[in-house]
Each structure stands twice: as structure tokens, then as C-alpha cells.
Simulated scan of single mutants.
Amino acid sequence: MKKLNRSAACLGSAALVVSLVNACSPADSAKSESSGPKKVTIQIDGAAVPYYAPLYAAKEQGYFAKEGLDVNFTYAQGSDIVKNVAAGNIDFGFPNGDSVITAYGQGIKTKVVHTTYQQGIGALLSSADAKIESPADLKGRTVAVTDLGSPNYIQLQAMLKSANLTTNDLKVRTLGTGVIVDALKNGQVDAIVFSRLRYYALKSAGVDVKQLLSDSYLPSFGNVVVASEDTVNDDPDTVKGFDKALNQGIEYTIKNPDAAVKMSVEKYAPSFKGQEADITTVINDLFAKSLWQSDTTKKDGLGAPDVARWQKAIDSQTDFKLLDSSYKADDLVVKPNDLG
């Protein structure tokens, strides 16, 4: 397989966030036109990548339009997205669930209205030569994370705790997102805790890599849709319409992965041109099987939350001192059937 692009650069600099906020003020973003569809904006974590195909498909296939919505996409860092949604600067956000949990506990409150990724996307990745088969094998090793305040660092601690180890039993290095994967490839570290999507990129690059999924040790969530408390309370129909269209986008992508990826690359993420086959494999093997669908979605529909699992994720952040105190998952997560 061709090498996957590893440079989905984040567009979340302070200057850009300001410009995005100004461009998506409530006066423009959530304004309903009597003569046409309601204009809404969703701010997405990172940059335009083909893995966001369900959102793009919901627009291109007309699912949003059928719900009376004209949806605009912008991009920023997850923590900035949550702040923008909470402040009412944008209508919807699509950040990592871990950042939503942390922000809510710190008083930056949004509502999760669609649990899009039913699992977290963190993983401990290691070269096969390192022979790391379980967290117990991390003793005395060198492991990299991007930041000591990141969810990945908490995931590492949870893995170690399962083996009665702590970070004192190994060497932890902090490396930027642009170099952490190369550090593993070049043998500078024994393992990294990072996105499980990189497992496929490393395999594609010919690296013999193994992975331990963080979710097995610490429940978490990847990208989820959030809205402000005011939007949920005052405009539930828009939230329900957005969720319905997104679900149709997910269903379309699952049934038509080749077409969905091709469209996403051509119209939204042209830097991935030539990698469509590899990306489609990831969509089929990971997103369709584990991230978008779960036992919960089989019972309650796409985007439905496992509230007990959300509670475990919240409590875990408290245990590892990301939050001063826990709170009820029901205060954060909205069940689709409870909307309006």
C-alpha cells in the first residue's frame, strides 16, 4: 500500500481561531433565512481529512438540505472548539470527547448531542522488535507522548496501573505531533501513545508495528458532536435535524466507502489524492466496525451514547487529576430521544 499522509496539520493557531470565531458569529452562523435553509456552522477538530467523510457525505448527498440546513465546515483545535461552542460563537463542534469532558468539569459547558465515535482512538504503538505484548512489558522502556497533560498520557497511566506500574517504572518522553511517529520508526523510543490511526499509516509504510488499544484500559471517545446548552434547550429541532443527516452520512459511507472517500478527497482533502485505497481500508476495518457502530448503536441507533461508559470516562479523569471532582454524565450527554 502507498504511504499514508502523516501531515494532517492542525489549523488551530490563536490567530486562526480568532478569525474563525469572527467569521462564524451567531449573527451569521445560526441565522435562519425565511427564504431558504438555516445556515449553521460546525467546527471540526484538526484539518480536513477523508475520515470525516460522513459529514461531507451528509452535505454532498443533500441530507443536511433535506433537514433544512445549510452547513458550513471550519476547523480548529479541540479545546478551542469547545470554547467557541460554549460561548455561542458557532452552532456545533466536532472535537475529541476527552476534551469535552475536561472542559465541562472546568466550567466550559457544552452538550454532547451525538456520540459519533463510540470508542477512543488512542493506542500504545510499538515496533514488533520491542516485544511489548502487555502493559507489564513497559517496565524500563522509553515511551513517548505529546504532552504530560494530554489524554494519551492519562491513557498510558491507566495501562501502567493495570500492571501495578507507574510512570516511575519507565522513561517518558514528550515529543511533538510532527515527530512522535518518526521517533518510533527510527527506534528512538520503544513505544508511543498516540492515535490508533497511525497503526495503519505505519503498516502502510512497511513498519512491523503492534498496538494495545487504550480503550481496553480507560474508556474514552473520539470525535463527538457538541452544541451549546442554549441551542439544545431553545432549538432542539435543528439539533435533531443535524443528527439525522449525520446518521444518513454515516450509513452512506458504510455502504459506499469508495465513493465517499473519493468525494472527500476531491472536494475537501485534496492532499490525500492517491491514498484513497488505503483510506478506504481504514474506513472499512476501523470506522465502520468499531468507531461508528457498537452494541449501543445496534440497540439505540447511530450516535447514541452509552451513558455508563461516559460516566467511567468522567470518573477516570477525576482519578488521574485532570478534574478536581466528578460530575454526572447525564448532565453532559444528551440522548437523541430526549431532544425536544
Rank of each mutant, 00 (worst) to 15 (best):
I81R: 02
I81N: 07
I81H: 05
V82N: 06
V82F: 06
V82C: 12
N84W: 00
N84A: 14
V85W: 03
A86V: 00
G88C: 09
N89C: 05
I90P: 04
I90Q: 09
D91Q: 08
G93S: 10
G93C: 08
G93D: 08
G97Y: 01
G97I: 03
D98T: 06
D98K: 05
Y104M: 05
Y104E: 05
G105P: 04
G105H: 05
G105I: 03
I108F: 00
I108K: 12
K109W: 13
K109Q: 15
K109Y: 06
T110P: 15
V113W: 05
T116H: 11
T116S: 12
T116W: 09
Y117I: 01
Q118P: 02
Q118L: 04
Q119P: 00
Q119E: 14
A123E: 02
L124E: 00
L125R: 09
L125V: 07
L125H: 10
L125Q: 05
S126A: 15
S127A: 13
A128I: 14
A130G: 00
I132P: 01
I132Q: 00
I132S: 02
E133K: 15
S134G: 11
A136Q: 07
D137R: 10
L138E: 05
K139H: 05
K139W: 08
K139E: 14
G140E: 05
G140R: 11
R141G: 04
V143D: 10
A144D: 12
V145Q: 15
D147W: 11
D147E: 08
L148W: 09
G149S: 15
G149I: 07
S150A: 15
S150F: 15
P151H: 12
P151S: 13
N152A: 12
N152P: 00
Y153L: 03
Y153E: 07
I154L: 03
I154T: 12
I154M: 14
Q155I: 04
Q155C: 09
Q155W: 04
Q155Y: 07
Q155E: 05
Q157L: 10
A158K: 13
A158M: 06
A158E: 07
M159W: 13
M159N: 10
M159Q: 15
M159T: 13
L160V: 01
L160H: 01
S162V: 11
S162G: 08
A163Y: 10
N164G: 11
L165G: 10
L165W: 09
T166G: 07
T166A: 09
N168I: 04
D169I: 01
D169A: 01
L170N: 12
L170D: 07
T174N: 07
T174A: 07
L175M: 14
G178V: 03
G178E: 12
G178K: 10
I180K: 04
I180R: 03
I180E: 02
V181W: 02
V181S: 06
D182T: 10
D182V: 02
D182A: 10
A183D: 03
A183L: 06
A183S: 13
K185M: 08
N186I: 02
N186Y: 11
